[in-house]
Design a binder for these strands. Structure first.
Length: 128
DNA sequence: CTCGTGACGGGGG
DNA sequence: TCCCCCGCCACGA
């Protein structure tokens, strides 16, 4: 296996800022493995105790992916909440607020310059 | 080598 | 919007 790919994945995950989350697909893409979101899951699963904020990776729906075994997803939610990430009643995270913004991911509609969307202050209102 | 699985995602209904 | 199904494909048995 390309342990090298794992390292790249970890490298990307380590870049996710505290209080922010990234999706598996996003991580895969940034790691140069576009379309291989699943591999990201494997990589994280294989983690031992390295300093990798694996808990900041969630699925595209903005929820912690249910594990088939183990209880790590509980821990994940816990860790995220302790970083200030909020979950709604359905156990989902508002990605438009907490998603990690990699530099300039192509702004199709031109975003609000000057700190627009999600800053490190997920505050409310900011309608529109 | 083959077979089943899954920390995913996108498309269709 | 939600749910279900299907393709991907590395891993491990």
């Amino acid at each position: 296996m390309s342990a090298d790919h794992y390292e790249r994945i970890y490298a990307v995950v380590r870049c996710i800022p505290r209080g922010r989350v990234a999706t598996y697909g996003q991580v895969a893409e940034l790691a140069g493995l576009d379309g291989h979101a699943r591999q990201v899951g494997y990589a994280l699963h294989a983690l031992r105790g390295d300093l990798v904020p694996w808990h900041r990776v969630v699925n595209a729906r903005g929820e912690v992916s249910p594990r088939s075994t183990g209880d790590s997803h509980e821990l994940q939610r816990h860790l995220l909440e302790s970083e200030g990430v909020a979950f709604d009643v359905t156990g989902r995270i508002a990605l438009d607020r907490y998603a990690w913004r990699t530099e300039s991911p192509r702004r199709k509609h031109a975003e609000k310059p000057g700190g627009g969307s999600a800053r490190s202050r997920p505050g409310r209102l900011r309608r529109r």
